[in-house]
Computed example of a mutant assay.
Amino acid sequence: MRALTLLAAIGIALSSASIASAQSGSPPPMKVRSDRISVTVEGKGPDVILIPGLASSREVWTGLATRLRQSHRLHLVQVAGFAGSPAMPDPDGRVAAPTAEAIAGYIRRERLKAPTIIGHSLGGEVALMVGARHPDRVGPLLIVDALPFYSLLINPAATSDSVKPQAAAFRNAMLMAPATQVEAMQSASIARLAKTEAVRPALIAAAIKSDLKTVADATYELMTTDLRPELGRITVPVEVIYAYDPIYGVPASNIDATFRNAYASTPHVSLKRVDGSFHFVMLDQPEAFARAVIDFLEKRAPTTINK
């Protein structure tokens, strides 16, 4: 069940409620756009970049943003092609890697000094790419229910080359499926991604707005990209928050081992499990998730946060 859940997360995703307007006393939201990403900036204080997952809207961070915007300047990223944003085809069919470069460019262009980066799912992989490939530009990384090589869930001995045929078949099946079948797959996938039933209809609706080719290309890229050899280049603290629920059908210790082994080569890494949650920890366990994020931020840059 755990493998199905995270593989569903590779191939489909979500949106949630709208991000509330900045509270009184904060600068009004500002939008910055490039070919690969658009960024909404709100709040004031130390910089925090938030990256949503595959086919997700930046609005997935609504609850967390409400807690942080009074004490941090939030940079809420929207990836091109996801949740209704215009698609930006890549000649090599990549999504995560160009997004990572766009975020690194954004950090440089906006002169951000060591921003904290929080990424969920595909966004977590993007955060790892930025941290490993531009270590001098980032602050601490918070990775939410993401692995540096997703195909480990299919086969612990998998390699980038060995999974290419399976990844290509999965991508092609997504592109060839009729619209009705795609919608049915989305509904089934969301049920494995979000434990909280009330949020599922909005997540399905948002997934339908995503560009199918962008999602298919990103799926292939995630399944064939192994970031483990690059993790040693990350020089900042990394915390990995991951989900567990008994419905996975495996002991929690097995999930612990999967994440521990996957991140074994990461310097300065810590792992934190959140129980009673599926893939979208911020929706299924919003209070536990917010506390974990606030603790992470306060350990590295003490500040006054609305708890």
Rank of each mutant, 00 (worst) to 15 (best):
R2F: 15
R2E: 01
A3L: 05
T5W: 03
L6D: 11
L7G: 04
L7H: 09
I10P: 00
G11T: 07
I12A: 08
A13W: 09
A17N: 10
S24C: 08
S24N: 12
G25W: 06
S26T: 14
P27T: 07
P28G: 02
K31T: 14
R36E: 05
I37M: 06
V41M: 09
K44M: 07
K44F: 01
I51W: 07
S57M: 09
E59M: 09
W61T: 11
L64Y: 05
L68W: 07
Q70P: 00
S71N: 06
H75V: 01
V77Y: 05
V79R: 12
V79I: 15
V79E: 04
A80H: 04
F82Y: 15
A87L: 05
P91H: 04
D92S: 11
V95G: 03
A97H: 11
P98V: 01
T99G: 09
E101R: 15
E101F: 14
I103H: 09
I103M: 09
E110N: 08
L112H: 08
K113N: 13
A114G: 07
G119D: 12
G119N: 10
S121P: 13
V126R: 10
V126L: 08
A132N: 08
R133E: 14
R133Q: 14
H134S: 11
D136H: 12
V138R: 07
P140Y: 00
L141M: 10
L142Y: 05
I143G: 01
V144E: 10
V144N: 02
A146F: 08
P148F: 04
S151L: 02
A157E: 14
S160N: 04
D161R: 13
P165S: 07
P165H: 11
P165L: 08
A169R: 13
F170W: 12
N172I: 00
P178R: 06
T180V: 12
T180S: 14
T180Q: 14
A184I: 02
A184R: 15
Q186Y: 13
Q186E: 06
A188S: 13
A191K: 15
K195G: 07
K195C: 01
A198L: 13
V199I: 12
V199G: 02
V199H: 10
A202G: 14
I208E: 06
S210K: 05
S210M: 04
D211Q: 09
L212G: 08
T214Q: 07
A216R: 00
T219F: 01
Y220G: 01
L222Q: 15
M223R: 01
T224W: 11
L227A: 02
R228I: 01
P229W: 11
E230C: 03
L231A: 04
L231P: 08
R233C: 00
I234Y: 11
T235A: 14
V236E: 10
V236H: 06
V240P: 04
I241H: 02
Y244I: 01
I247G: 03
Y248I: 02
I255M: 06
I255C: 04
F259Y: 15
R260I: 01
A264L: 11
T266Q: 14
T266S: 09
V269E: 06
V269Q: 10
K272W: 00
G276D: 13
G276F: 13
G276K: 09
F278W: 11
F278D: 01
F278I: 00
F280P: 00
V281T: 13
Q285A: 12
A288H: 10
V293K: 08
D295G: 07
D295W: 05
L297F: 14
E298K: 14
E298S: 12
R300D: 06
